[in-house]
């Protein structure tokens, strides 16, 4: 670190190195180390316990290495069914949230009137609403209005309510970078509005649609607070994990945790690589 800061500091005369700065840099580095230890140590303990033969999850009481808890996972019907429910809900959420978010984003970016602030506030409000409130309102609405009891359907709708807002924000960011003249040019060349949308707008949005679908999928799979209220007597993988955590701990939960961690790390590495490429592209262009 000292080497890193010293080189540019020497190159830029305005950045005079001073002993005070070295000190604050050193303190900052120590703090960073502590912070990251705080972030990662508990996770490492959890991962370690997944491979411990001890029947209660523990990282300290080591009773030998085992993969038994992983082997048990596919045999646990509630986990397997929960995963099925999670995937079903996530698919539903993508199908709902992408068109909703896209419509909202198109209207908000293409309308030039001032009244859009109100519309914008309403459409992003689900993000700022506590998850359990979304679960509760969805559950009440569907039972009181249509007699639909809480279940997979209400969980899907409740999740889509706020995930659509995230999608909308992503689409808005993308649409604001689009040259609207492209759509006008296509129209001028005789394209019907539908063709303009299909050939110009959609291809431009496609990368964002894929990203939004991926994020929606993750958000849906991982959601607990909203789903917990809206799912009724059914369950998803995550609510099942939650109830296992509450009633009697099993290292199987740690085993699932390891799978989650591995998937997350892979996704994060892909994200980091994509970010690097994006930065390199920006620097080049």
């Amino acid at each position: 670190m000292t080497a890193e800061t010293a080189t540019p500091a020497a190159a830029v005369p305005a950045a005079r190195p001073s002993s005070g700065r070295d000190w604050s840099d050193a303190i900052l580095n120590v703090y960073l180390a502590v912070f990251f230890a705080y972030l990662f140590l508990p996770l490492l303990l959890m991962v370690a316990a997944a491979f411990n033969a001890s029947p209660t999850p523990s990282a300290t009481d080591w009773q030998g290495f085992t993969l038994e808890w992983f082997r048990q996972l596919p045999r646990d019907q509630r986990f397997v069914q929960g995963l099925g429910h999670s995937l079903l809900i996530a698919t539903g959420v993508i199908v709902l949230a992408i068109p909703l978010g896209l419509s909202g984003a198109l209207i908000l970016t293409r309308l030039r009137s001032r009244s859009t602030t109100t519309l914008y506030t309403i459409l992003v409000s689900p993000i700022l609403t506590p998850g359990i409130v979304l679960g509760v309102t969805t559950m009440i609405f569907w039972r009181d209005t249509f007699g639909v009891e809480a279940g997979l359907f209400t969980a899907t709708v409740a999740q889509a309510t706020f995930i659509a807002s995230y999608c909308m924000l992503m689409f808005m960011a993308r649409l604001q970078r689009q040259d609207r003249v492209l759509e006008e040019a296509a129209l001028d060349l005789g394209a019907s509005p539908v063709l303009v949308f299909r050939r110009i707008t959609l291809p431009f949005l496609m990368p964002t649609i894929l990203t939004a679908a991926f994020i929606s999928f993750l958000q849906s799979i991982e959601n607990y607070n909203t789903t917990f209220f809206a799912i009724g007597s059914s369950w998803t993988l995550v609510t099942e994990i939650g109830s296992r955590m509450r009633f009697g701990l099993s290292p199987m939960v740690n085993a699932i945790g390891v799978l989650f961690v591995v998937l997350t790390v892979i996704a994060a590495l892909i994200w980091a690589a994509a970010r690097r490429r994006e930065l390199a592209r920006l620097a080049a262009g």
Binding site: D179, E184, L189
Partner: peptide
């Protein structure tokens, strides 16, 4: 509408479709 007129417009920034 612009798509029904016997006119074609060349835009200031050309508006070539970048993905085609």
């Amino acid at each position: 509408g612009p798509n029904r007129r016997p006119t074609a417009l060349i835009f200031q920034n050309l508006a070539l479709f970048p993905l085609m």
